[in-house]
Computed example of a mutant assay.
Amino acid sequence: MGEVKLIGAWGSSMTWRVQMLLKMKGIEHEYVEEDLANKSPLLLQHNPVHKKVPVLLHNGKAIAESLVIIQYIEETWENGPSLLPKNPYDRAVARFWAKYFDETCLPAILKAIKTAGEEREKAKEEAIELLKFLDNEVKGKKFFGGDTIGLVDIALSFGAYWFDIILELVGLELITKDKLPNLCQWIDEFVNYSFVKENLPDRDRLTHVFKVMFPGSAAK
């Protein structure tokens, strides 16, 4: 299917999304590590709009934005497991929840992390209310994709692993069993799923990265 190259950054959950699917499908590719503090001409050339990772290069043609890349991979390579169901309606639902997390939940949670005092408490409650929709969506299921991980599970990986580290560092309780029991159960299933567990970035190294990003964090 031609040359495949992934421009990414270590520890980036958005890069990880794409890496996971490439590995799941057994797609041979070259990985190019990007220094986000000193962005390369390669990245700026192929993603001049957002100047962010990840970027997938397939036969020299660039595709940006992780969810867009995932869907491109799904439509281009039939080998290996699929993250999207066969039924068109179910595929649309999966795309909806993945987009909902990125565009609605993610900004709300980041606001709670970056604020303090009464503003943080208000932002926290708003984030919980938004996450309750996802909590209900995964109720009674092992994964959002059913018995196996799917698009929504991969999209929510930031909330399952990366956010857990950040929330611990800043001293913020957000995803708790009393407020979001189904999401908590899903997180446990997801991070301990063998293929996911084997490919998650090292927690200690990631914690060190976030300590630099959040110098006033609770954990020292």
Rank of each mutant, 00 (worst) to 15 (best):
E125Q: 14
E28V: 15
V212D: 04
P85Q: 08
K197A: 09
H29Q: 06
A62S: 15
L169W: 00
L57A: 10
G2D: 09
Y89P: 02
I128M: 05
S40K: 06
K124V: 05
M20D: 00
W77N: 09
E121L: 07
G60R: 07
L21K: 00
E30F: 00
F101W: 13
G26L: 11
V18K: 04
S217L: 09
K122Q: 15
L169H: 13
Y193V: 03
M14H: 12
V209N: 10
H50K: 07
E74P: 12
P107G: 07
I165W: 04
E173Q: 14
L131P: 01
S82L: 07
S66G: 08
K220V: 12
E173F: 02
P201N: 02
M14C: 15
H50E: 01
E126D: 15
W10R: 11
I69W: 08
E65P: 09
K124W: 01
P88I: 06
A127T: 01
L172E: 00
S157V: 11
R203W: 03
L134I: 07
H50N: 12
G140H: 12
L44I: 07
S66T: 09
T148Y: 08
E173L: 03
V196N: 03
V138P: 08
L67I: 04
P181G: 13
I128V: 15
P88G: 05
I69G: 02
Y89G: 03
W186G: 12
N47I: 05
G11Q: 03
E34Q: 04
K139V: 07
K142S: 10
D102M: 07
L206K: 08
W16G: 08
F214M: 04
V68I: 15
R17W: 02
D102L: 06
K177M: 10
V93T: 13
E78R: 14
V93W: 03
I187E: 01
N79M: 08
L151M: 14
Y193N: 14
D35I: 03
N199Y: 07
K139T: 11
L131F: 03
S194L: 12
S12T: 07
I154F: 00
V4H: 01
R205P: 00
A108R: 14
G171K: 01
A9S: 13
L172C: 03
I109T: 11
V68K: 03
P85E: 06
I63Y: 07
K211W: 07
Y193F: 14
E129W: 02
V55I: 10
G80T: 09
K111C: 10
R95G: 05
K142F: 01
L167F: 03
L167D: 03
I187N: 08
E75G: 02
E189C: 11
E65C: 07
L42D: 01
G11V: 04
E129Q: 15
K139R: 15
L22F: 03
L169Q: 07
N38C: 02
K141W: 05
A123W: 04
I69Q: 09
I166A: 03
D204I: 05
K197I: 04
G80R: 11
E189P: 00
A98P: 10
D135Q: 10
A219D: 11
P54Q: 05
I113L: 08
I69E: 00
R17K: 15
K124P: 06
L130P: 06
T176V: 10
I128Q: 04
I113M: 06
P107W: 05
A94T: 10
E198D: 13
V32H: 12
